[in-house]
């Protein structure tokens, strides 16, 4: 007999809470979050790259480059770039896997996928790239399909993050790896204060000025604060079944790269 018997709470209040999730600092119904996130990205898609460069002062390119360095990708590999947005990672992977490999750029948001596809086509990258509009929580791919799955700045927008990690684990081949690049918790208190000031006061104004949309960038700042910290996310990786999980803090922990293997 268990010392701590599980008590099922079927009260209307408990059910209501179970149906809720966060959208930035707000509590919303789980069923509505995906469409609300879609609204944010529909709004920012056209200016996404420009805003990324402005917001991070170009450092996001170095974070993504570090992700590629840690990917171990080789010619012939099959890569899934989840929440691939405007295709920064996919462009590089496309050249690295060569004609014998393939890169699937997947995003739940049609606007982002369209911007990404147009950008990659303009770069002359066509032959080994596929585009799929897909929900990370229910990936439409067979088991053991990919050597590498990457997700850069996408996981925090997913409603049920654990479901997404489980789904990614399923589609990875044994020996494959998952890399999640995501905003995280700064490791120094001073940096944290500075970062808060930047995210809540400067970022929305920047969004208003460049993309004419302060709200989406307010959501960005809030969603980062609601995202699990480094250790919690590592634990979620392990829960999904990943092994040899670790993370690397980048720029003082503002961003962290989590890595896990499926064996």
């Amino acid at each position: 007999m268990s010392d701590n018997p599980v008590v099922s709470d079927n009260s209307p209040q408990a059910n209501h809470q179970a149906d809720q999730t966060h959208f930035g600092f707000r509590q919303v119904e789980k069923s509505k979050k995906a469409s609300m996130v879609a609204g944010v990205f529909d709004s920012v898609a056209a200016k996404y790259d420009l805003m990324n460069d402005l917001m991070s002062m170009g450092i996001h390119r170095l974070w993504k480059r570090y992700t590629i360095d840690c990917s171990g990708v080789r010619a012939g590999h099959k890569v899934l770039d989840l929440a691939g947005g405007t295709g920064d990672l996919a462009a590089k992977f496309s050249r690295l896997v060569g004609p014998t490999g393939s890169v699937t750029l997947a995003d739940i948001n049609h606007s982002m996928l369209t911007v990404g596809r147009n950008k990659l086509r303009d770069m002359g990258l066509i032959s080994n790239l596929d585009y799929v509009q897909a929900d990370a929580e229910a990936l439409p791919f067979p088991d053991n399909s990919f050597d590498l799955v990457t997700m850069a700045f996408g996981l925090r927008n997913v409603t049920e993050k654990q479901n997404a990690l489980n789904s990614i684990f399923r589609v990875l081949k044994p020996g494959g790896r998952l890399l999640v690049l995501e905003f995280s918790k700064p490791q120094s208190e001073h940096l944290s204060k500075l970062y808060d000031m930047y995210s809540f006061h400067i970022l929305p104004k920047m969004g208003q000025l460049v993309a004419n949309d302060a709200e989406s960038y307010q959501y960005l700042a809030e969603s980062i604060r609601m995202h699990p910290d480094q250790e919690t996310l590592k634990g979620m990786f392990e829960t999904a079944g990943f092994e040899q999980c670790d993370f690397h803090n980048l720029t003082g922990g503002i961003v962290a790269l989590h890595r896990g293997f499926k064996f």
């Binding site: 170095l62 570090y66 360095d69 980048l250 720029t251």
Partner: peptide, 10 residues
């Protein structure tokens, strides 16, 4: 690390 990435990018 961004410093190493900056080197390879350059």
């Amino acid at each position: 690390m961004p410093a190493q990435s900056l080197l390879t990018a350059t």
